[in-house]
Design a protein around this nucleic acid. Structure first.
Length: 574
RNA sequence: CGGGGCGUAGCGCAGCCCGGUUAGCGCGCCUGCUUCGGGAGCAGGAAGUCGGAGGUUCAAAUCCUCUCGCCCCGACCA
C-alpha cells in the first residue's frame, strides 16, 4: 500500500471530546472517525486492525468446533416480550417501528433470535451439543457513550451460543470457550485476567469476564493471592477490622446537632468520628415500595447487588423532594430510625459486627449517635450490598487482602442454563421421545472494543505501538528522499520483496520532510520502520527501526526481509 | 434523569459580557521559491448558512425565546 494513495488522515492535535489515550490516538492516527455520539466509522487503518482481530477470533472459534452464522440485526419486538427483556433491557434496547407501526429492536445481543432458531431447527438430542457464533454489529443505547469505540452505541461483537442436553456438556463447551478466549487475548498480545462477574441483563448463574488490564479501564477488579478474582459488581468481601467502634448509647440514641453537615466527610469531621462509624441510609424505590439501604459510611453501595436482591432491575434512587417527603428531612440527614413502617430496610452484612453507629436523625441538621441495630431499628433483612474495597479480607480464603486493578472488559461468558429456553419454550426430544428445554451458554467478545483496548494497553507519548499480531501494517518502508532515483529503486525492491512474502507493507512515498513522516509513522504505530537514507545507502546499509523498543539497527539490504520475517515469527510478547 | 459547559473554516480556538468595518488566530489545505533524518521558512491563496428557527433592533456571532447536537460531572450526598 502506498501512503500517497491511502486514506489516512493524521492529526497533530486531539479532538476536544477525547479523554483517554486510546480515543485520542485512534482519532489522531486516522483509525476511526466519529459520525455521531457513540457511533464511529472505521477508516482503513482501524479497519485493518479490526479485521485482524476478527481473523484471530474466527480461528479460535472454529478450532473449538463453533460454527459461524449470520443473524439479522433487526429483531421483531415480540421475541423480547417472550423473553421478558423488552422490560428488563430497559432503555438500552434500541427500538423502532416499521411503516405499519410494528415494533422492532436493533439487536443488543442475540439470545432471543438464536433461541428462536434453535426451537425451530434443533429437534433431537442427536443434534446436540451445538455451538453457533457470529461477528456483527450490535446496538445498545448506552446511557453515556464515551471513550471512542471503547463504549459505543454501535459496536462489533462476536457472540456465540451453545445448546446442550446436560450440564456436563455445557461445562465442556464453557471451558472450551474460556480456553479460546485466553488464546484470543494472548494472540492479540493483551495482558488479561478472567474474573467472576455479574450476569446483568443476560442472566444465568455462572459467568466470567475477561478483562484486559489497563489504567483507563472502566472495570475495577479484585484479586487475592489465593486465586480469587472478581469484578466490582460481583466481589464479596469480609470487610476490614474497624479502627474504632461507636459505643452504644444507654437506653436510646443520643440526638446531636449537626447544622449544615450533610456529607459523610462533613459529619465525621464535625463529630470527630471515623467515617466507618457512620452509616449511610440510601433511599430507593422498587416497584412502589420505599427501600432503605444501610451501608458503612466509608463504603459505596453496590447497586447491582441491590437490584439482584430485590429482583428488580429498575430500582430508582429517590429525588430530593421524595426524600423530604419520606423522611421528613432534607438530603443528608436520612437515617433508619423512625422511617415509615412500610419501608423495607436492608442492612449491609458488614453492619452486623457494629456495636453502635452514627446515622441521620431524619430531622434537619441533626444526627443520632450510639444507635444500636436491633434495638433502635430493626432491619427487614441483612445482605451483602456494599462494594468491596482494596484491603478488604478475601471472601474466599479469609486470609489475605484483596487488591484492586483496573481494566477493560473484552469478553464475557455465561452459563445461561434454561433461562431463555424456558421463557421461549425451546425444546428438543430426548432418547425416549420426551420434551426438554435446552441448556444454553452464551459467549460475547467485543471486537471493536478490543481495538481500543489494544491501543490503551500499547502506546507511548508519541503514538500507538500495535501488538505485532494485529498491526495494520507489518512494516513501513520510508525512503527519506523520494526524488533520489537510487533510494527509490532500493525502496521499491524491498517493498516488493516484503509484499511477496505476504507481509502488509506501507510504502511512504510522500514527498514530505523526513521528520514529519517519522512522526506520522510513530503515531500510527507500525512496529517496524525501514528507513532508506542516501548516506547509509552509499555504504549499502538500510535502517530498521523497532518502534516499541525505540531502537534501530543498520543492516544489509539483503537481510531486511529475513529480519522482518524473523520478527514476526517470534512468539508475540504478551 | 439531575447539574454544568460548549456549538464560529477540515481540526484546535479567540471574538459574545458592553450589538456597529470586508468575523479573526494557530494547525491543516492550494500555488510558488527556499529547505530537506524527527511535525521547516517566506510569499501568495482558497475555504465560514457564526448549529437551527423565531424574536428585539436602523443594525445580531454578540441580546431574548424555543429547538437540535456535542461534551463533562453526577445519578452511592443521604
Amino acid at each position: 500500500m502506498r501512503w500517497s494513495k491511502l486514506y489516512l488522515p493524521t492529526y497533530k492535535e486531539s479532538p476536544s471530546d477525547a479523554e483517554i489515550p486510546s480515543h485520542k490516538l485512534m482519532i489522531r492516527a486516522g483509525a476511526i472517525k466519529k459520525l455521531t455520539s457513540g457511533v464511529y466509522t472505521f477508516l482503513p487503518v482501524g479497519f485493518r486492525v479490526l479485521r485482524k482481530i476478527e481473523a484471530i477470533v474466527r480461528e479460535e472459534m472454529d478450532a473449538i468446533g463453533s460454527q459461524e452464522i449470520l443473524m439479522p440485526i433487526l429483531h421483531p419486538a415480540e421475541l423480547y416480550e417472550e423473553s421478558g427483556r423488552l422490560q428488563n433491557f430497559g432503555p438500552e434496547l434500541f427500538k423502532l417501528n416499521d411503516r405499519k407501526q410494528r415494533m422492532f429492536a436493533l439487536g443488543p445481543t442475540h439470545e432471543e433470535v438464536v433461541t428462536d432458531l434453535a426451537r425451530a431447527e434443533m429437534r433431537s438430542y442427536r443434534q446436540l451439543p451445538q455451538t453457533l457464533y457470529q461477528i456483527l454489529t450490535k446496538f445498545r443505547d448506552e446511557i453515556r457513550p464515551r471513550f471512542g469505540v471503547m463504549r459505543a452505541r454501535e459496536f462489533i461483537m462476536k457472540d456465540a451460543y451453545s445448546f446442550h442436553d446436560s450440564d456436563e456438556s455445557l461445562e465442556v463447551t464453557y471451558q472450551d470457550m474460556a480456553g479460546a478466549y485466553h488464546r484470543i487475548l494472548d494472540r492479540c498480545g493483551l495482558d488479561h485476567m478472567m474474573v467472576e462477574a455479574d450476569a446483568g441483563v443476560i442472566g444465568g448463574d455462572v459467568n466470567h469476564e475477561f478483562i484486559v488490564l489497563t489504567e483507563a479501564g472502566e472495570s475495577e477488579i479484585f484479586t487475592c493471592s489465593c486465586g480469587y478474582t472478581a469484578n466490582s459488581e460481583r466481589a464479596e468481601s469480609l470487610g476490614q477490622p474497624l479502627s474504632s467502634n461507636e459505643s452504644v448509647a444507654e437506653g436510646s440514641p443520643v440526638r446531636v446537632e449537626t447544622p449544615g453537615q450533610k456529607t459523610i466527610d462533613e459529619v465525621s469531621a464535625f463529630l470527630e468520628a471515623d467515617p466507618s462509624q457512620l452509616v449511610k441510609t440510601l433511599l430507593y424505590r422498587s416497584e412502589g415500595q420505599i427501600v432503605a439501604a444501610l451501608i458503612p459510611g466509608d463504603r459505596s453501595l453496590n447497586e447491582v447487588k441491590l437490584m439482584k436482591l430485590l429482583g428488580d432491575p429498575q430500582v430508582q434512587t429517590l429525588g430530593d423532594q421524595e426524600i423530604l417527603d419520606v423522611t421528613g428531612a432534607p438530603v443528608g440527614f436520612s437515617g433508619p430510625v423512625g422511617l415509615p413502617k412500610s419501608t423495607r430496610i436492608i442492612a449491609d452484612k458488614l453492619l452486623e459486627s457494629y456495636e453502635g453507629m452514627i446515622v441521620g436523625a431524619n430531622e434537619n441538621d441533626a444526627h443520632l449517635r450510639g444507635v444500636k441495630m436491633g434495638r433502635d431499628f430493626v432491619p427487614t433483612e441483612t445482605a451483602s450490598i456494599s462494594e468491596a474495597k482494596a484491603g478488604d479480607t478475601c471472601p474466599r480464603c479469609a486470609k489475605y487482602e484483596l487488591v484492586t486493578q483496573r481494566g477493560v472488559e473484552l469478553g464475557h461468558i455465561f452459563k445461561l442454563g434454561k433461562k431463555y429456553s424456558r421463557s421461549m419454550n425451546a425444546t428438543y426430544l430426548d432418547r425416549d421421545g420426551k420434551d426438554h428445554k435446552f441448556i444454553m451458554g452464551c459467549y460475547g467478545f467485543g471486537v471493536s472494543r478490543a481495538v481500543a483496548a489494544a491501543v490503551e494497553a500499547n502506546h507511548d507519548e508519541r503514538g500507538i505501538v500495535w501488538p505485532r499480531s494485529i498491526t495494520p501494517f507489518h512494516a513501513i518502508v520510508l525512503p527519506i528522499n523520494v526524488s533520489d532515483d537510487h533510494t527509490i529503486k532500493v525502496a521499491e525492491s524491498i517493498y516488493a520483496e516484503l509484499s511477496e512474502q505476504g507481509l502488509d507493507v506501507l510504502f511512504d512515498d510522500r514527498d514530505l520532510r523526513a521528520g514529519f513522516r517519522f512522526k506520522d509513522a510513530d503515531l500510527i504505530g507500525v512496529p517496524l520502520r525501514i528507513t532508506l537514507g542516501e548516506r547509509s545507502l552509499r555504504e549499502n546499509k538500510i535502517e530498521i527501526y523497532y518502534r516499541g523498543e525505540d531502537r534501530s539497527e543498520l543492516v544489509d539490504p539483503g537481510n531486511v526481509a529475513g529480519l522482518i520475517k524473523a520478527y514476526y515469527d517470534e512468539k508475540p510478547a504478551a
